[in-house]
Design a protein around this nucleic acid. Structure first.
Lengths: 208, 208
DNA sequence: TAGATTGTTAATCGATTAACAATC
DNA sequence: TAGATTGTTAATCGATTAACAATC
């Protein structure tokens, strides 16, 4: 397939194109807005089936369609969320997901105080309902929004019940069988990057 | 300095070492747990001042100290959060931040219904207090937890008030002067990765 | 000492950049 | 047609891997 780095940039192009109002866009324009050299943009897009038009640029809608297909956005995917704390609630209520053709069909918690509470259109269910909901709605993705101490336990439960991919928001390493996809969204890693950049900048300004 | 890819892995080593109970750890062990070849681990660690001991491995505490210094975790940094919705609340209440030597000193919202509400030990303040809090506490990082429509507006406000780094949780591109550091935590990009991996796996299993 | 593990140099691989040809 | 922009090939650069020397 294409380079890992290219895939990362294709995600950025996708976001940019989703908000683009013009009919055509050039590699110069895309690159300029994202801070990426236009040659790189063209190279990246050359991996796709869709071809741009010399002198005109890339047809936004066609290119977006191609990227949607690539990212599987043309197929609906069901998601459940485990953990009805602030993060799980934020995720459930996130307004942008409809654009990505995913549907949140359940939110779970083990805390009796949270069970029965309404979160958006959903009602927080006890963990015992996990299996039923996964099977009934054919859920493919499970999001882990529990404290890191319970992350592995929840991961095991999701795997046992046939979930295909885990979206892990807990700042913890989880181990799963190799056939299960894991995507980690550990904000503490982001924080390390930020602090590092601040640190580098501070020491540079002292030296320079 | 060292490669960008190395820095990313150093963050993973940092997280792993923070939870390690043994006194020494080998590159084999680190790599095994993170799915990284041990040669790569040694190469990465060779960029640091700290040296491991042949036949013994790396002294966990010393290595962690070195990484803490590298990431600027030995210096306290103040953070404010703009947006007191579920995400801003989740971030404010996040229990792990004390380990990273950051302190959340304020949470802001423009919604009168949210102002005055308690979030952890803090009280949600109106936007007018932003400047005062930033100056008073010498705040370096501002986290944007508002809907994407307001993200740029908030970013401008933060920049005007002298914030050094922006931690952007809104799924939007924001533009800031080049001297301001931006770290984007756009979960919609993570979602694209997940859907792509599912898509690839599904088409592979159909073909294979 | 022998053996295990780190550290480093060289070789390979992959990604980016530059140059230019193709094309509308 | 001339000019602008894409697409592609080749050259460069950077990161990973392999091999092995250093060392406790």
């Amino acid at each position: 397939m294409f380079p890992k780095a290219t895939l990362e940039r294709l995600k950025l192009y996708h976001r940019l194109l989703s908000e683009e109002k013009e009919e055509y866009i050039s590699s110069e324009e895309i690159g300029g807005r994202l801070g990426i050299p236009p040659e790189q943009v063209r190279k990246d897009l050359s991996y796709l089936e869709y071809k741009g038009k010399p002198k005109v640029g890339y047809h936004v809608k066609s290119l977006l369609d191609e990227l949607n297909r690539l990212f599987g956005l043309d197929k609906k995917v069901k998601v459940i969320i485990v953990g009805a704390g602030n993060l799980g609630t934020a995720l459930t209520n996130y307004p942008g997901f409809s654009n990505y053709n995913i549907e949140i069909v359940g939110i779970f918690d083990k805390d009796p105080a949270k069970i029965g509470k309404k979160v958006g259109d959903l009602v927080v269910l006890p963990m015992e309902y996990l299996e039923r909901v996964i099977k009934r709605f054919n859920v493919e993705i499970g999001a882990i929004c529990v404290p890191k101490e319970s992350a592995q336990e929840v991961a095991n439960l999701l795997v046992e019940n046939g979930i295909k991919a885990i979206w892990n928001f807990a700042p913890a390493l989880i181990s799963v069988p190799e056939y299960v996809i894991v995507r980690n969204e550990d904000i503490t890693l982001g924080l390390l990057s930020l602090k590092h950049m601040l640190e580098v900048k501070n020491t540079q300004s002292k030296q320079g």
